[in-house]
Design a protein around this nucleic acid. Structure first.
Length: 477
DNA sequence: AGCACA
């Protein structure tokens, strides 16, 4: 029981000990360097490095007290100070008589890293961001995250200790690159040690744990039920407050998405009050306003990641807008206020800047990202120019059987049950997915236009079909 | 640059 000295720790006041305390070491000094330093004076039986908040202190324990005295004496009278990597290190007797517990699991190299994410917003760092960060050093097999008194932590499993070590050496003490986090997340520092684990047990793919080696692992219900998860990959958790207004961005827009198409799609979940479409960085976005937040939440959950047209076209990404009430200045092919009975009345001024001629709408986009080389799933009907409200214009087959391409779940990890989702209808077989479309009220599924829009590739679905809940998407497991 | 909490 060598108790810690209570006296002040000034130079030259420590009683001799076979343990020496070293400070001013270069960052992350290694055990090997300590042994090299002490070896000329005796047998180093134990070391402890990376001590202290700056990890620049260490201990060397000699087999014999005289060896420690020899080292202290030598450097006390030497013209050359003790050095590690050219940096002067300062020696003194430790106030303890032995190094305790030097070799923790944290010091033994293994293939699993224990990562502590430090920072005010550490908990907002998503597992996807961690995956991204650590994947730079090799294939990440599994990640689990958890909260301990130490804070927000993760276990990151690599194939081998070498890969893990390279990641540890490169990342320990570093911050997560800012561009991987939302702007409003304060810096997060990574503290990394080795874990004693060699193989993590991951039961589900979820927002807390991932197994990147097992594509058939079930997806945790919590991960499926969650909405708004498409942005987890970059953003961390949901930061946006819920809103009655949804911001939709449309990916892979091979075919025009008209106001009417959006109106129909989003009306499935409740009355759409207003829609405003606009271009953002060359991509189409739209704001869709519901009367209440609840409706917006349901719509978002049901539609997120789904494609308006079969075959992966016009995939919807939804987030909550900061708007609560859109200001629709003019009813045209890009914006409309459905709460006003007569659209013509809401057009106080002629169309002004930024308004596109009608005929530019509805043309097939020169999508470069997606080349439908095979004919399998193109809408057979050529997209029609979108004429206005209440016309007989027929947008090309919006598909109420929206395919789920939930980007939250990594494609490779899609479990068995989702394989049908990926099935191309051209291959025949059972419709891959439950209809997301319900007819909650008379607002939907009435009128000629709707009927035409619903030209069903899968006749079972849609307006006539009675019983399938709108959120069936997310419960289909 | 000043003593370890794993």
């Amino acid at each position: 029981m060598a108790s810690v000295s209570s006296q002040p720790q000034f130079r030259y006041t420590q009683p001799p000990s076979k343990v020496l305390h070293l400070r001013n070491l270069p960052w992350e000094c290694t055990e090997e360097e300590l042994i090299e330093l002490g070896k000329p004076f005796g047998k180093v039986v134990n070391t402890k490095c990376n001590v202290g908040a700056n990890r620049n202190q260490a201990f060397i324990e000699f087999a014999d007290l005289n060896q420690a005295i020899a080292m202290i004496s030598y450097y006390a009278s030497s013209s050359e100070p003790a050095q590690v990597r050219g940096k002067t290190v300062y020696l003194q007797y430790s106030n303890r008589q032995e190094i305790v517990n030097n070799k923790t699991t944290a010091d033994i190299a293994g293939n699993v890293l224990l990562v502590t994410i430090e920072g005010q917003d550490a908990r907002l760092v998503s597992i996807d961001v961690l995956h991204l960060v650590f994947s730079a050093f090799g294939f990440v097999h599994k990640i689990t995250t958890f909260e301990k008194t130490a804070g927000f932590q993760a276990l990151v499993q690599f194939s081998d200790a070498e890969t893990a070590t390279s990641a540890k050496n490169a990342l320990d003490g570093r911050i997560i690159p800012r561009y991987l986090l939302s702007e409003n997340i304060s810096p997060c520092t990574l503290r990394i040690t080795y874990s004693a684990h060699t193989d993590l047990s991951v039961k589900f793919q979820s927002h807390r744990s991932r197994d990147y080696t097992n594509p058939y692992l079930p997806v945790a219900p919590s991960a499926i039920d969650g909405s708004n998860q498409f942005n987890l990959g970059v953003d961390g958790k949901k930061l946006e407050p819920e809103s009655n207004v949804l911001l939709a961005s449309i990916e892979n827009m091979q075919y025009a998405v008209t106001l009417d198409v959006l109106h129909m799609v989003f009306s499935a979940f409740g009355p759409v009050q207003k829609i405003a479409m606009f271009d953002k960085n060359g991509a189409l976005q739209a704001l869709i306003q519901y009367p209440d937040v609840q409706t917006a939440i349901v719509a978002k959950e049901a539609l997120e990641g789904h494609c308006i047209y079969d075959g992966g076209f016009c995939k919807l990404h939804l987030s909550y807008s900061r708007h609560t009430d859109l200001s629709i200045k003019v009813n045209n092919d890009r914006s409309r206020d459905y709460t006003i009975p007569n659209p013509a009345m809401v057009n106080p001024q002629p169309s002004v800047l930024g308004q596109q001629p009608v005929q530019t709408m509805g043309h097939q986009y020169n999508g470069t990202q997606y080349a439908p080389g095979r004919q399998q799933q193109q809408p057979t009907m050529p997209p029609q120019p979108s004429a206005g409200w209440g016309s007989s214009a027929v947008p090309p087959m919006p598909q109420h059987m929206m395919n789920n391409h939930n980007p939250y779940i990594p494609p490779a990890s899609m479990p068995q049950m989702t394989q049908g989702m990926m099935q191309m209808p051209g291959q025949g077989g059972i419709p891959p997915f439950r209809p997301t479309h319900i007819c909650p009220d008379s607002y939907c599924c009435q009128g000629d236009m709707i009927e035409q829009l619903m030209i069903p590739p899968q006749p079972s679905a849609g307006c006539g079909a009675s019983a399938v809940p709108a959120i069936g998407v997310n419960t289909d497991k």
